[in-house]
Amino acid sequence: MAKTVAQEFIKGLWAEIPPFRLVLGLCPTLGVTTTVKNGIGMGVATAFVLVCANILVSMLRNVIPAKVRIACFIIIIATFVTVVELLMQAYAYALFQTLGIFIPLIVVNCILLGRAEAFAFKNPIIPSIADGLGIGIGFTMALGSIGAIRELFGTGAILGTQIMGSGYEPFAFFVQAPGAFICLGLMLCLMNLVGSK
């Protein structure tokens, strides 16, 4: 456990990037990544909750009795998720409309519970913030990149601007649910290929 703060941060970006390496948090990964914007919006919301929850869990780690720690984690996470949901509804309504049910579902995202249990409960505040930020940004990048691939092939555009030529026939399969599985599978495969060398 002699890792530096920087190492805790960086591991979330590649070595433990959530959907690919930890294979956690697949529900939003498959559900909302139809466009880059949705993917990044979901990633940022999750990252925010993750950092806040990590800070609080780490702060309270000596107060919370081990036997009820999971219940405490859930209270903390649910509180932040509801705060995010309300704020998003108030200030980013369009995003709230497209993400819909996936925002409240952040509560049961296993990345959050996983980080609280595996990291924040055992480490001081500063490394916990680094861990939360790293994993959160990694998750955002992963969702953004899956979103980019699906949006590019599924609609021929990225962030709403047309990239493929006008002759391109949108491959609608990619923006539907099976496309998400295949896209995730291919990216996992690619990452393992790069990582194994």
Binding site: V63, I64, P65, V68, A71, C72, I75, I76, A78, T79, T82, V83, L86, L87, Q89, A90, Y91
Partner: peptide, 24 residues
């Protein structure tokens, strides 16, 4: 611990909801 945590959670949520209600 659980009581305090739940109560403060309720307090935070109530105040955030109150602040954002009109905007929503």
């Amino acid at each position: 611990v659980l009581t305090i945590l739940s109560a403060s959670s309720g307090l935070i949520l109530a105040s955030v909801r109150d602040k954002t209600l009109d905007q929503i």
